[in-house]
């Protein structure tokens, strides 16, 4: 019973992070701030969702596999973010500053 409550809580928390990340992706002014919102909030959101799934899984091995998926997504997301930011920086995109549109 308490497992259900716990995984439900984790799921809702994860969804909240996803919503925040998506709002940031849509509303933020430039590529660096968007990446910031997307990668940080969404990987944490994915972590909470994976935790919720792991709590519901039938065996410890399935739970470990789900957490492995999260770890791989974490590494891939961080690397992709770094590559995009690096490319943007090299092609001369300046970070947004307060006061600009």
């Amino acid at each position: 019973m308490w497992v259900d409550v716990l995984s439900g809580l984790a799921l809702v928390t994860g969804l909240a992070f996803f919503v925040a990340g998506t709002v940031g992706l849509i509303r933020f002014p430039d590529i660096y701030t968007r990446l910031h919102a997307l990668t940080k909030a969404d990987t944490l959101g994915l972590g909470f969702v994976s935790l919720a799934i792991a709590l519901q899984s039938p065996s410890i091995f399935v739970a470990l596999k789900v957490m492995l998926v999260w770890a791989v997504a974490l590494a891939a997301g961080a690397t992709a973010c770094n590559l995009i930011a690096q490319y943007a920086d090299r092609s001369g995109l300046r970070p947004w500053e307060r006061g600009e549109p």
């Binding site: 791989v72 590494a75 891939a76 961080a78 690397t79 770094n82 590559l83 690096q86």
Partner: peptide, 11 residues
């Protein structure tokens, strides 16, 4: 990219 390098080594 060093970051991509290390990802490739693991993944």
């Amino acid at each position: 990219s060093l970051v991509l390098d290390s990802l490739v080594h693991v993944i």
